[in-house]
Design a protein around this nucleic acid. Sequence first.
DNA 1: GATGAATGAGTATTCATTCAT
DNA 2: AATGAATGAATACTCATTCAT
Lengths: 180, 180, 180, 180
Amino acid sequence: MDKREQLIATATRLFSERGFENTPLSLVSETANVSKGLISHHFNSKNELLREIFKKTTQLIVEINTMDKANLSPRETLKELLESFFSQLESDKLSFQLNLNVMVQPSTRELLSDLIKERSSFILEATKTIFDEIDGKNSLVMSHMFIAELDGIAISYLGIYDDFPLKQIKAHIIKKYAEQ
Amino acid sequence: MDKREQLIATATRLFSERGFENTPLSLVSETANVSKGLISHHFNSKNELLREIFKKTTQLIVEINTMDKANLSPRETLKELLESFFSQLESDKLSFQLNLNVMVQPSTRELLSDLIKERSSFILEATKTIFDEIDGKNSLVMSHMFIAELDGIAISYLGIYDDFPLKQIKAHIIKKYAEQ
Amino acid sequence: MDKREQLIATATRLFSERGFENTPLSLVSETANVSKGLISHHFNSKNELLREIFKKTTQLIVEINTMDKANLSPRETLKELLESFFSQLESDKLSFQLNLNVMVQPSTRELLSDLIKERSSFILEATKTIFDEIDGKNSLVMSHMFIAELDGIAISYLGIYDDFPLKQIKAHIIKKYAEQ
Amino acid sequence: MDKREQLIATATRLFSERGFENTPLSLVSETANVSKGLISHHFNSKNELLREIFKKTTQLIVEINTMDKANLSPRETLKELLESFFSQLESDKLSFQLNLNVMVQPSTRELLSDLIKERSSFILEATKTIFDEIDGKNSLVMSHMFIAELDGIAISYLGIYDDFPLKQIKAHIIKKYAEQ
DNA sequence: GATGAATGAGTATTCATTCAT
DNA sequence: AATGAATGAATACTCATTCAT
């Protein structure tokens, strides 16, 4: 694999597991089996590396959301979104962790502020497009609630409650949004 | 004021504004106008100081939740809880920030894991007590959803959306929980 | 001795011998038998340490020049200045070296620019005060020439000519300025 | 232009502006629009590159001094030398800067010691040849004084006094050497 | 000749903590 | 209780140099 890609992959994992501030670049380079200098060669700084990682995730989110859903009803689209959210949340805990982490940490939030704004605007727009079809009048509030619920679930599941009843919550929320 | 209390107050503010990892104790001592050594004297370590701060917030939460609400109906209790949540969220942004921060950051989460468990159990219990009266069968899931929604709202409001429609969200959620 | 003073003394010697840019702080701390951290504790940065050293030399220069010379004629004062210059040049080569070094190196010159301006203004004033008594009309040019000659001699002696005939030059220049 | 020449030109400028130690080769290669590797390819090391630059300047000095001056009197030769010195000092500040820089910086002085010796011997010889004709007995001291004065003027003008009265100094020194 | 990825030693700086006073 | 000097480990970053292509 390209060493640059390898570095991004390793850094993503380590930043997720240990937090950005708590992961020295030396650990990244050791884990990726490359020299310390190579990180500076490809990314100019640790901050730049984080931005690169954040961008990649945004790309993924955009890709998922721009898949063709033309033939689906809004409710069906929501259901699909939720299914994909919950399956990702289970399979890719760490990635969620990192994304929450950097958005809640003042220093990283500032560092990524433009990228965060870009991504969150996209998500809000994408969500609102769906809710517009369901209830045009309240679509903004409903979209914000939808997003907040998913974020809140992620926090509870990842960071707070060891015995969070994910399956039941999933059932509950799918029922609420997709089966009315 | 007691210098110990003064230190806790200053540290709380700075940790909230800048994040725990990103706040050197030297800054805390300067800001509080005490010597660096005094922090180690009162708290054994930076970690211990954070634990002390976290405990204080838990105490506050417990106090708020154990005020006598015997004469209120569950819906009224929820409404009161929500009112207090939103007013705190607006007036004390930073405190919310810090609490999200330390729970999402792997290193601090581990450091505080026992205290987090203690606090979150309390919150879940307190919430569940209310929902038990509303719908005994689904009270656990509903409690978790309730908590997740509030956390999610906090994240969106504090960290992500500059133009988060807090007032409308508040109205929406109060209507949902308290006026059925 | 005060460790702060000890650090300044050691750093002065090492910066002189090896050049500022070429002297790592680790070498300074090792040579002074203190920890690396202590340098940061007393001086905030390597640059700050250099400024401190430069200031000290300026102080010395000011002290030497403000000794009471009221009873001396201008020629006698010049002679005394020259004697002191040449004896210092021989005994304290390194100090001259450092001062030339930092004034000719673009990075350090910028770093010290205010201090350099301050010092060189003082020297020009002090010199001009003497030449004013000798030849008021040409005193500025003569002062500049006087200073330039001494600097040029220092460079030739310290940096360029191994077999620079210092004694003869000294005799020549004393004759020129003091014995007319 | 030959890329090798282009590199020398760029490096000369950058070393002069920023100092040798303070100019990374990466900056040289970027500025010259060539790859980093090419520098190592043409010159074996950064040090070698500096030696090459220093040699070039020595060549220039030699050329200027070996122009045929057979028909000029020694005073006329001195005058011509001074004219050329002052016009160069004004037009090519940076080059003077670099040459002072590397001779005063211990690390570079050592690196170039053989070349410095070679060049300074040449200059001394060339100067002495002229002064021999004026005053054979004192020609060595006078040559050293002449050289020191010019170096000192360069330092004052380039590095110390923003408002150095170059024109008057030039007039003064030409009068002193060429019009007796 | 020419490129740019890759290396690894070097270095200033940050910072929690210790300890004598 | 309170100070601040002192420590030393940790860490991001710089940069000359090497080397495969």
